[in-house]
Design a protein around this nucleic acid. Sequence first.
DNA 1: GAGATATTTCCAAAGTTCTGGAAATACCGT
DNA 2: ACGGTATTTCCAGAACTTTGGAAATATCTC
Lengths: 109, 109
Amino acid sequence: MKLDDAATRLEALGNPTRLRIYRTLVRAGEEGMAVGKLQERLDVAASTLSHHLKTLIGVGLVSQTREGTTLICHTNYPMMRSLIRYMLEECCVEGSCAPGGLAKLIEAA
Amino acid sequence: MKLDDAATRLEALGNPTRLRIYRTLVRAGEEGMAVGKLQERLDVAASTLSHHLKTLIGVGLVSQTREGTTLICHTNYPMMRSLIRYMLEECCVEGSCAPGGLAKLIEAA
DNA sequence: GAGATATTTCCAAAGTTCTGGAAATACCGT
DNA sequence: ACGGTATTTCCAGAACTTTGGAAATATCTC
């Protein structure tokens, strides 16, 4: 992943409302969650939610599939994986970030 | 880590200039890097660099120690570890993020 | 304490983000 | 095709970010 792409994705997650959206979608699991349900859950104006979703979709962290009149949102796990991998690469140069080994870091997660 | 803190830290890293700063400091390793050297390396105005460093220090991702007239910047690895751990927790609920297991994700890093 | 170097703070301009109401679009059922 | 529900796009205001020149501060050396 290029630095600028990582920055754009981190920026997308670096807004409390968008991070809440992402978090909620992760917790929704495989089946995802409709935009309307998300709105109700997060108590935010429809247009505001739509803007934030556009941002998350734009950077590839979320995707939507239509089911009739409702749009179902899903997290894009591989993209999140790539982003975390990027951070591990940036953070763990020379092993200084995870002195007890990377396994330790993950164990705790 | 609280959601708002995670968001603030992700936002701090979510700017290309600040991510370059952080990346450069990680690569500088244990001994860190002086502000002046960073400036020369990244080719950015001194005041601009100072603002960005203040942001990174403010969220706890970077620290400074004085050595005579120069200030040496260091990455705060534990904070980055906590942030990555937060993302793993948010991302890997129910194991859907790393189907091959977390070790696989780390292995590749 | 004066002069030199390193860095920050002050100020301000240009650009961007966040928010939500209102109007538009998309799709379904009849 | 019409009425209804779901969602987005348009518009705009307020707030925030980013940037850097100029002035201020901090520290060292002599």
